[in-house]
Design a protein around this nucleic acid. Structure first.
Lengths: 341, 341
DNA sequence: GACATCGATGTAAAGGTTTTCATAAATGAT
DNA sequence: ATCATTTATGAAAACCTTTACATCGATGTC
């Protein structure tokens, strides 16, 4: 049952009484063939149920119309919505999307490059923040396909990046807190080396400075971006008794840790403390109190990135090295007016 | 830069001083060529950086080593981990994974079938619970590729299904509640027409009956599987003043609604009410109180499903129409001993 | 009427493999 | 020494397209 011999272009040609070249043209460049012929061809196509064999086509045309997406973890809710955006745009433009779940494993990354080197994919989307291991090594020099980075820019390279404007987003977030009367605002960061963290911290500082609020270094703490580190940072503040009225967190996971810690201490949120996150991950609306945060336009990021990559594939040079999209302020219930000074 | 003309099998053959047939054999069936020749070939391969062109290979072999995954929403956290499992297994076996995000749109579903009919994919994984629209219609009759369903079985078909044992899982969940002294246990369901709901409700009934606990129909409520419906069902119970000591919910989303409702009424959980979910979605551990639930072995489901599909592709008949995996009881903090009778 | 132009179609090459079949050498049996 | 068998290799076909080039008739120009 498997191989009931699909109709080929020859079958169609025979039925329509034309050559295979004409069939090909009738399908791909309809205006190049006479009306009558075109009609006969499409009739023959309908009759045979012909679909062009993508393999033969790709072989001949030296392009597969496939895009490879390399991500450390497709299941990560932060990534998966970008993925949806990528897929939507690709599909709209007639491209297919191939996924490579690298699990941050160098071997697997290298392994996925076979899709590129064997012509199974024309372009590459990178979630990883670095070039895949295995490029530019040994024989034959690098053979870099067109690529675009999302989620994290690729350092030391000119790979175009599409992402959220972290600086601006963080500034807006901080200003939101300030507008609610907060002046002692803590920043719970990721590790300082991360580019994302740096930008978000800068946005925080810029907002404070812009409003003439002095920056208290004791209110700026490092973490590692996890819920646990959010909790740890909060506890640390209570131990040292240097307390803010609001916490701005580098991401929602961290903010969740802060909330859990404050809830455990029986504080009434947001009356006694305000907490803000960044990202708007799926459970942000389910925490109690639901989390006020900056929403990453993930779908849009995916679409833009794919759009850029496809433009690259069509030979257009990238207009800009970086496309930054605005994060959107999502007001929920974790931020209230500052109760104390 | 794009097309620096990759090395072909001919280049390798020339360097190694053999025919292309021998190169092909040296690569694909090494034991069929003499040691010395094999050595020369692999040297030439290394020297040229040759990789076999997958398109040419697929064209000739009439198989692409690609699997198409059709899912309504790849971003859904319930799906994405299955996806990871699918991808892991496929990758391990040398297959690539193509994603089709259908968004429950019939047009898009049909559109993705082009991957099948154009030979770009050898098999199909279905998340949708139904055959894609466009199969078995008009000319040429159906051309069904080997396929396997996950997440939801395909009704009225003999498509093999890999999923969680809902009946058994629900029974275990109910027994856990009973073991904590609960006897008045509510079941907040999905719409009764859903297969998943039916099985989980049956498991619930079976557990109660097994322990000789009478079933109170007033404690069985319908919903639609959303958080909102969980909340609504809970409110409904308070209005009618028919109260359980524990809530067993058809899924975690519903359980979350129940918890939110109870929290809002200022009950102390799990002292005054116990709540149990099913699925173990990512935020289950972040709610307060963190949710006791039955964990779906999503990774494993993905792996098993892919394993089954690949077996099918290799011509082995499926051993069974349904592979049911055990759900695992995850004890967190939303279930306590029954305080009242 | 000669000639260039144009439109529609066909012929054949090229794209890079895998695999059948044939050939040749080496080995083993008698 | 002869023949049968095995092992290692090569030549060529097949997989199915797209497309450069050639052909041919029709149309238009001078």
């Amino acid at each position: 049952m498997q191989h009931q011999k699909l109709a080929t272009i020859e079958d169609v040609a025979a039925i329509a009484g034309v050559s295979i070249a004409t069939v090909s043209r009738a399908i791909n460049e309809p205006r190049k063939v006479a009306d009558e012929t075109r009609r006969r061809v499409s009739e023959a196509v309908a009759q045979t149920g012909y679909t062009t064999n993508a393999m033969a086509r790709s072989l001949r045309m030296r392009r597969s119309n496939m895009i490879l997406i390399l991500a450390p973890d497709v299941g990560d809710p932060n990534f998966s919505n970008i993925l949806v955006g990528l897929e939507t745009e690709a599909s709209k433009r007639g491209y297919g999307v191939l996924i490579g779940n690298t699990q941050n494993d160098a071997t697997r990354e290298t392994d996925y490059l076979r899709f590129i080197s064997s012509n199974q994919a024309d372009g590459l989307i990178l979630f990883t923040g670095h070039l895949p291991y295995g490029f530019g090594n040994e024989a034959g020099e690098a053979r870099l396909p067109p690529m675009v980075a999302v989620n994290e820019p690729v350092s030391n390279s000119d790979v175009p990046f599409v992402g959220v404007d972290n600086f601006e987003g963080s500034r807006v977030a901080t200003e939101h807190l300030i507008s609610q009367g907060h002046r002692r605002i803590a920043f719970i960061g990721h590790s300082t080396s991360k580019a994302v963290n740096m930008l978000r911290e800068r946005g925080y500082r810029a907002a404070l400075e812009g409003q003439g609020i002095p920056i208290d270094p004791r209110l700026i703490l490092d973490g590692d971006g996890t819920t646990e580190s959010g909790r740890a940072a909060t506890e640390h503040m209570f131990v040292r008794d240097v307390l803010p009225t609001a916490f701005l967190c580098v991401n929602d996971a961290t903010a969740l840790g802060v909330i859990i810690s404050l809830n455990a201490r029986r504080y009434d949120l947001p009356r006694e403390f305000s907490v803000m996150g960044f990202d708007d991950i799926s459970f942000a609306s389910f925490v109690t109190p639901s989390l006020t945060t900056m929403k990453q336009p993930r779908l849009k990021i995916g679409e833009e990135a794919m759009d850029l990559l496809l433009a690259l594939l069509e030979g257009k040079p990238p207009r800009q090295k970086e496309v930054l999209l605005r994060a959107e302020l999502i007001v929920r219930n974790s931020v209230g007016r500052a109760a104390r000074e």
